[in-house]
Simulated scan of single mutants.
Amino acid sequence: MKFSKQIIIDLPREEVFKKVEDPTNFKHWQKGFISYRHLSGKPGQEGSRAKLKYKMGKREISMIETIIKRAVPGKLHVSYEATGVFNIQKNYFQEEEKTRTLWIADYEFKFSGFMKLMGFFMPGAFKKQSLTYMKDFKNFAENGNRVNEYGKTN
């Protein structure tokens, strides 16, 4: 399954890039985020790997993040591997004006096992969640608003 989402953020491109790639910010804009643990490579650089944990409903999900391409401040391509799901997210940050950034995210999901059914019957859920993360990031980056583990904005 492939799709794209985009959003305008009212901040300079360099600032957006710094905030979006910083794992210490994940808890502020990714609902359900629990933890980030560096596994290998130079942190934040191409080839580095980390383990991320999320709480989704009553389940805890772990995934491995690998940075595929990092070109500051314009591109950040990352893969995520979890049980039954492989996702490549290609992020592009385009300067709209000196103080505005267009964030374009191209997603490609591949499913296996039970998750094949989820991907087939509920593609809208993946698209909705992706856009929600982008909107929550925008709200955090522009206004300092943060989400908590229950999906509420603080």
Results as ranks from 00 to 15, higher is better:
S130H: 04
K116P: 02
K128P: 04
S112L: 09
S48D: 12
M122R: 10
K42L: 14
F111D: 02
K27Q: 14
Y92Q: 14
E15A: 13
P43K: 04
F33D: 02
R100G: 01
W29P: 01
S112Y: 10
Y107M: 05
G119V: 02
F126I: 06
V85Y: 00
F121V: 11
N139E: 15
G41L: 02
K18S: 13
M56D: 10
I34L: 14
K138N: 08
E60P: 00
G41I: 03
E65A: 08
P12S: 11
T101F: 00
P123V: 03
K127E: 08
K18F: 07
R146I: 11
L117H: 06
S48R: 07
G74F: 14
S62R: 07
L117S: 12
G144P: 04
F93K: 01
Q89V: 13
N143H: 13
M56H: 13
S40V: 09
E96Q: 15
K69T: 14
F93Y: 12
Q129G: 08
M134C: 10
E21A: 12
S62K: 09
M63D: 09
F137N: 00
K69R: 15
E46G: 10
P123K: 00
E81C: 06
F114Y: 09
T101D: 03
D22R: 09
A50K: 03
A71K: 14
R100K: 15
A82Q: 09
T83W: 08
G47S: 10
R100Y: 05
K19H: 12
F111N: 01
W29M: 05
T101H: 00
W29I: 01
P123F: 06
L11S: 04
T101I: 01
E14F: 05
L11K: 09
E15R: 12
K51L: 15
M63P: 02
M134E: 05
E46W: 07
D136E: 14
D10C: 06
F120C: 10
F111K: 02
D22L: 07
V147D: 00
T66V: 09
G84Y: 03
T99I: 13
L76D: 01
Q89C: 15
E95S: 11
K27I: 11
A125T: 13
I88L: 15
M118Q: 06
N91G: 07
T66C: 06
K31C: 11
F33G: 01
W29K: 03
I88Q: 07
D136W: 05
K135D: 11
H28T: 06
V78E: 04
E108V: 10
S62A: 15
E142N: 03
Y80G: 05
I88V: 14
N87E: 12
K19Y: 12
M56V: 14
L117R: 08
A50S: 12
V16Q: 02
